[in-house]
C-alpha cells in the first residue's frame, strides 16, 4: 500500500502540472506577441478537462480553507502580521 505522504506528493505534483499548463495557455492568450511556443506536454483528459475547470471555478477563499483542512499548508509556522504600520519587533528573549 502506498504511504499517505507519497499519495499527497503525487496528487500535488499532478495537480500543479495541469494547473500550470492551463495557466501557460491563459498567458499565451493574454500576451500573444511575446514569442512563446505551445507547450509540448503529454496530458491526461481527466485532469485537463475535468479537474482544471472545476478548480478554476472555486473561489480562492474556499480553496485556502480546503488546503488548510486537508493538510496541504504548512503547520508550526506563525506568519508575521501583514498590516501596514505594524512595527518591527525584536526577537523574544530566551
Amino acid at each position: 500500500m502506498s504511504e499517505p505522504g507519497g499519495i499527497k506528493r503525487r496528487f500535488r505534483a499532478t495537480t500543479e502540472r495541469y494547473l500550470t499548463i492551463a495557466a501557460f495557455e491563459a498567458m499565451r492568450g493574454r500576451y500573444p506577441d511575446a514569442g512563446s511556443r505551445p507547450p509540448a506536454y503529454r496530458q491526461n483528459a481527466f485532469w485537463s478537462r475535468v479537474f482544471v475547470p472545476v478548480y478554476a471555478r472555486i473561489p480562492w477563499s474556499v480553496k485556502q480553507k480546503v488546503m488548510k483542512a486537508s493538510g496541504m499548508t504548512a503547520r508550526g509556522w506563525t506568519p508575521p502580521p501583514r498590516e501596514p504600520g505594524t512595527p518591527w519587533r525584536p526577537p523574544a528573549p530566551k
Binding site: 500550470t20 501557460f24 498567458m27 499565451r28 500576451y31 511575446a34 512563446s36 511556443r37 507547450p39 506536454y41
Partner: peptide, 17 residues
C-alpha cells in the same frame, strides 16, 4: 524545453521575451 518560454515556472511571457 517542453515549456512555452524560458523560466516558465516562475516568469511571465512578457518578461521572458
Amino acid at each position: 524545453d517542453e515549456g512555452p518560454w524560458a523560466l516558465h515556472e516562475v516568469l511571465d511571457p512578457d518578461v521572458a521575451q
